[in-house]
Nucleic acid binder design. Structure first.
Length: 489
RNA sequence: GCCCCCAUAGUCUAGUGGCCCAGGACGUCACCCUUUCAAGGUGAAGAUCGCGGGUUCGAAUCCCGCUGGGGGUACCA
C-alpha cells in the first residue's frame, strides 16, 4: 500500500481520507504502508508543501513504514530524486526498443493547433495518435538529428478494449474501447516522467499490490493497465474511492474554495481521533448502527468490500457533533493539555503557561468540558475567568419582567450577602443565593441571570455557582459593584 | 460534445429477491431535565427506495432505457 501525494499545497481533507483508507487497509491486513512524494510537475511545486503534508499525516496518526523522511529498502521516496538517479529513463528506453512506445516530435504549440483545427473541422474529440508511431528507424534518426525536442509516448492500441476490475465496484469489469484512448506522454520533452509513467514504475519497484486512490483516476486506469501489460508486470488490484463532494453537491471538494486543508482542522480544535472516525465513515460503514469507533476498531473492521461506490457530501455538522463526542470522552487532564495552546494563542495565558495557569485551567475544565465541540471555542468560554471583563450594559443585566430598580435591589442584596458569606465554594454560594431569590420575590432564573451577566459579562456561561466559585470572591464582588454602577438610578 | 462511474429522507448511511408499507446517525422541531448555554432523556416530522419498462409467485435489491449527479477529456497530478 502507498499514499503518494503531490507537493502542490497543503493536504486537503479528501487526500487525508484517501490516505486513511490506504492506511486502514494496510494495517488491517498487516501490510506495509509507504509514503512517496510525486513531484514530477516542476511548475506546480510548492515550497514547504511536503513538510506540511507529512505533518498533517502525523497529526492524524497515520504512520508509514517507508517514506522520504525515514527511508526504506526502496529509497529514495521522492520522484524528482529517483528521476535524478535515472530510474525512469531506463524503463522508457526499454519500451522504445521493443516498439511499444515512440518518440513524438510535435511541440505543445503544434498539438494545440492540431487540436483546434480538428475541432474546427467538426471532429467531436481530439485524440492524439502521432504519425511517428509508424516511423522507421531512419525517420526517427533524421528527426532526432534536427535537434527537435521530443516526448516519449505510449503506443496505445487502435482497436480492441481494455478492461480492469475495481474492488469497490464489486470487482465488476470496467471496460473501454481503445479507440477512445490516445497516445499518452510518458516522458516530457524535459526528460521528466509524467505521473502515469513514474507512479507505475515506482509502484512496481516498490512492490505495491493494491492501489487505493481517488475516483478521478478511473479514466486513466486503462493507460496504466496497458503500461503494465507492455512491461509484462503484474497488475495491482485497483480500488477507486469516491470523491467527497462539496456541501452543496456541486463538484468535489477543493481546498481553495472550501477551507478544508488538513491544517485548518488542527487550528480550529478538531481531535485527530474524531476526524479519523468521521472520515472513515465517508464512504465506508461497518454496519447499520455503529459509528463511534476507536482507531483499533477501525483497523480491525475496515474492508474495501464495505466501501461505497457513490460519492459522499462534505458534512461539517456531523463532524462537529462527532468532535463533541470525542471531547466529552477525554480525560480532564488530557483536555487541559490540549486546551493550553489555544488559550496561549488567544493571549489569555502565557506561552508557555505557568504552573499556576495550568492548575487554574485544569480547575476550569469541568465547567466547559461538555459544552465544547471545537477546542477553539475554549478561549471565548474561559475569557471571563482569565482576564478582566468590561462592565456589562444595563439592558443585559435587567432580566425578564424586571426593571432597573428591581435589578439594583437584587444586585445590591446579593452583593451584601456574598460579602459576608463564610465560605467561597459552590454549596455555600448555592445555599446563600437560592433562598435570597425567594426572599426578593424573584424566580431563580431572574436573580441568577443578573448575577451571571454581572460576573461574566455574558448571558451564556457555565452554571452560576461553580462559575462564581472559580472566579473567586474578590473579583466577583468587584464585578458586582461595577455592574451596579451600570444601572441608572 | 465524447468516454467512464454513480443513484435509499436536507446530509452520511444499513439493506445483495420475501425478516423492509425500509433500520441507525447528523441536522430540524416538540417535550422533559434545568439558573443561561450545552450535555442527557423522550418523542415527532422527513424516503411513492430518481423515473419508466421488464424478469419473478414476490424487487430498494436482478436486467434494459431514460433522467440526474460526479469524474475524465494536458508534455497537471
Amino acid at each position: 500500500m502507498r499514499f503518494a501525494p503531490s507537493p502542490t499545497g497543503s493536504l486537503h481533507i479528501g487526500g487525508v481520507r484517501t490516505a486513511l483508507f490506504n492506511w486502514l487497509f494496510a494495517r488491517h491486513h498487516g501490510g506495509q504502508f509507504l509514503l512517496r512524494i510525486e513531484d514530477t510537475d516542476e511548475t506546480r511545486y510548492v515550497e514547504g508543501a511536503e513538510a506540511q503534508i507529512l505533518a498533517a499525516l502525523r497529526w492524524m496518526g497515520l504512520d508509514w513504514d517507508e517514506g522520504p523522511d525515514i527511508g526504506g529498502p526502496h529509497a529514495p521516496y521522492v520522484q524528482s530524486q529517483r528521476h535524478a538517479l535515472g530510474i525512469y529513463r531506463g524503463y522508457a528506453d526499454a519500451l522504445l526498443e521493443r516498439g511499444l512506445a515512440y518518440k513524438s516530435f510535435v511541440t505543445a504549440e503544434e498539438l494545440e493547433q492540431q487540436k483546434a483545427a480538428a475541432l474546427a473541422r467538426g471532429l467531436k474529440s481530439f485524440r492524439y495518435r502521432g504519425a511517428e508511431r509508424d516511423w522507421d528507424a531512419a525517420q526517427v534518426a533524421a528527426a532526432e538529428a534536427s535537434g527537435k525536442p521530443y516526448t516519449v509516448r505510449l503506443k496505445v492500441p487502435l482497436t480492441g478494449t481494455t478492461e480492469f476490475s475495481d474492488l469497490i465496484r464489486g470487482g465488476d469489469e470496467i471496460s473501454i474501447e481503445n479507440n477512445q484512448l490516445y497516445d499518452i506522454v510518458l516522458i516530457k520533452s524535459t526528460g521528466m516522467p509524467v505521473y502515469h509513467f513514474a507512479h507505475l514504475v515506482d509502484d512496481h519497484l516498490m512492490g505495491i499490490t493494491h492501489v487505493i486512490r481517488g475516483e478521478e483516476w478511473v479514466p486513466s486506469t486503462p493507460y496504466h493497465v496497458l503500461l503494465y501489460k507492455a512491461f509484462g508486470w503484474d497488475i495491482p488490484q485497483f480500488a477507486h474511492v469516491p470523491n467527497i463532494l462539496r456541501q452543496d453537491g456541486r463538484g468535489k471538494l477543493s481546498k481553495r474554495k472550501d477551507d478544508v486543508g488538513a491544517n485548518r482542522f488542527w487550528e480550529r480544535g478538531y481531535l485527530p481521533e474524531a476526524l479519523t472516525n468521521y472520515l472513515a465513515l465517508q464512504g465506508w460503514s461497518y454496519d447499520d448502527h455503529t459509528e463511534i469507533m476507536s482507531r483499533a476498531e477501525l483497523i480491525e473492521r475496515f474492508t474495501l468490500e464495505r466501501v461505497q461506490a457513490s460519492p459522499a457530501r462534505w458534512n461539517p455538522d456531523k463532524l462537529l457533533d462527532m468532535n463533541g463526542i470525542y471531547i466529552r470522552a477525554l480525560d480532564p487532564d488530557d483536555l487541559t493539555h490540549r486546551l493550553l495552546p489555544f488559550l496561549s494563542a488567544a493571549g489569555l495565558i502565557d506561552t508557555p503557561p505557568t504552573a499556576a495557569q495550568q492548575a487554574y485551567v485544569r480547575q476550569l475544565v469541568p465547567l466547559i468540558h461538555e459544552r465544547l465541540k471545537e477546542l477553539g471555542e475554549a478561549p471565548a468560554l474561559l475569557a471571563c475567568f482569565l482576564q478582566e471583563i468590561d462592565p456589562p450594559p444595563a439592558e443585559l443585566l435587567i432580566q425578564k419582567k424586571m426593571d432597573a430598580a428591581s435589578t439594583r435591589t437584587a444586585l445590591a442584596s446579593a452583593l451584601e450577602h456574598l460579602t459576608h458569606v463564610e465560605a467561597w465554594d459552590t454549596p455555600t454560594l448555592e445555599a446563600t443565593l437560592r433562598p435570597l431569590a425567594e426572599e426578593l420575590g424573584l424566580k431563580p432564573g431572574q436573580l441568577f441571570g443578573t448575577l451571571r451577566v454581572a460576573a461574566t459579562g455574558s448571558s451564556v456561561a457555565p452554571p452560576l455557582f461553580e462559575t462564581l466559585a472559580a472566579i473567586g470572591r474578590e473579583r466577583v464582588l468587584q464585578r458586582l459593584q461595577r455592574a451596579l454602577a451600570q444601572l441608572p438610578e
